[in-house]
């Protein structure tokens, strides 16, 4: 791989971050970095369908929220000792909650995708938004799980051999998942399936004309992306130790989309860079002025108007749009 060296350096830096943060007396940075990793997975998963498949989903935060709520609800039932619907026991084991979170998000994406992908263009953007809004209001109304106040997850999930109460251990766990997800997505994008997705983005009519039944490939991509975002949400619930409907609000969907575009649509690392840039800007600008969004808005505008390849495009790596 041509980019192997910079990637290795980047990864080494990421692994070393908690020690550096401790050494510099900035332990709070670890939590911030963990949040970036989680959002990076979410943004990367959106990039699979948005950047490579051309499907502009404006409801991707729904799967983020569903993943997070899966962890929260399983914790709540574990804490109360009451099985869900009297059947499914609660759990605080990460190796249990994570796969379930991905499953829940994947099933939701399968149902929503199957319906939404019958439309395209603006209608697709809006129908995915509509489904996410349904989920948002559903959880606002579920008093049993805190309604709009959200749900506390008093203790992070357990993993054999790790203590997630230590911020650095949670950080490394999330880093591991991010790297694994990016590797998986890199393989997918380069595979025959990925070529089909990419072809659909560029010219769906052409794909049908070479004998590809595009709907089922789009749906498969949609489900994979939903599962990835569910994973991100489940990790986020552990990081925040709190879940609320805000995790699936339309603004969150917008934010995830912003990360993808800011970092660079259709690039491997772009969404993660975008997540880091957005969270970082929030942190840095937020430290200077409480009105940081006043400056963030024009920055986003400038990216759209003058740097359509996002940050990765500016770095001259893997730029495609422009």
């Amino acid at each position: 791989m041509r980019n192997a060296l910079p990637l290795a350096v980047l990864l080494a830096g990421a692994i070393a971050l908690p020690w550096a943060a401790e050494a510099l007396g900035q332990p709070a940075t670890i939590g911030l970095a963990t949040r970036i990793l989680c959002l990076g997975i979410a943004a990367a998963s959106l990039n699979l369908i948005l950047g490579h498949g051309g499907m502009v989903s404006f409801g991707h935060a729904l799967y983020y929220g569903l993943g997070a709520y899966t962890v929260g609800i399983l914790w709540e039932h574990f804490r109360l000792g009451e099985p869900i619907f009297g059947v499914i026991p609660g759990s605080n084991e990460l190796l249990v909650t994570l796969p379930i979170a991905m499953l829940v998000a994947g099933v939701a994406a399968a149902v929503i995708g199957a319906l939404s992908l019958r439309t395209s263009g603006v209608q697709f953007i809006m129908i995915t938004l509509a489904f996410a809004q349904m989920g948002f209001f559903l959880f606002v109304g579920l008093k049993a799980y805190g309604g709009d106040d959200g749900l506390l997850v008093r203790r992070r999930n357990l993993v054999p051999g790790l203590d997630l109460r230590q911020p650095d251990q949670l950080y490394w766990l999330c880093l591991g998942f991010l790297v694994a997800w990016l590797f998986l997505q890199w393989r997918i994008v380069g595979s025959r399936f990925g070529r089909v997705l990419e072809g659909i983005r560029q010219n769906e009519r052409r794909m049908a004309a070479i004998g590809i039944a595009t709907y089922r490939y789009k749906l498969a991509g949609f489900v994979i992306a939903g599962m990835g975002c569910g994973l991100a949400g489940a990790l986020t619930a552990n990081e925040l130790r709190f879940v609320s409907p805000d995790l699936m609000a339309w603004q969150k969907s917008g934010e995830i989309m912003v990360m993808v575009i800011l970092g660079g649509v259709g690039t491997l690392l772009g969404p993660v860079v975008g997540a880091a840039a957005l969270v970082g800007m929030e942190y840095v600008l937020g430290g200077i002025t409480e009105n940081w969004q006043f400056f963030l808005g024009p920055i986003l505008l400038a990216v759209v108007l003058w740097a359509p390849g996002g940050i990765m495009g500016l770095l001259g790596r893997g730029a495609r749009r422009g």
């Binding site: 595979s191 025959r192 990419e198 072809g199 010219n203 070479i210 004998g211």
Partner: peptide, 26 residues
């Protein structure tokens, strides 16, 4: 109606792939 961002070869390779069976290979 072509895939403008790809090479000529990649375009035809995709058409060959479409003939070669399903593309659920990840």
């Amino acid at each position: 109606q072509l895939l403008d961002d790809d090479t000529a070869e990649a375009n035809v390779a995709l058409a060959v792939q479409a003939r070669a069976g399903h593309s659920f290979r990840f």
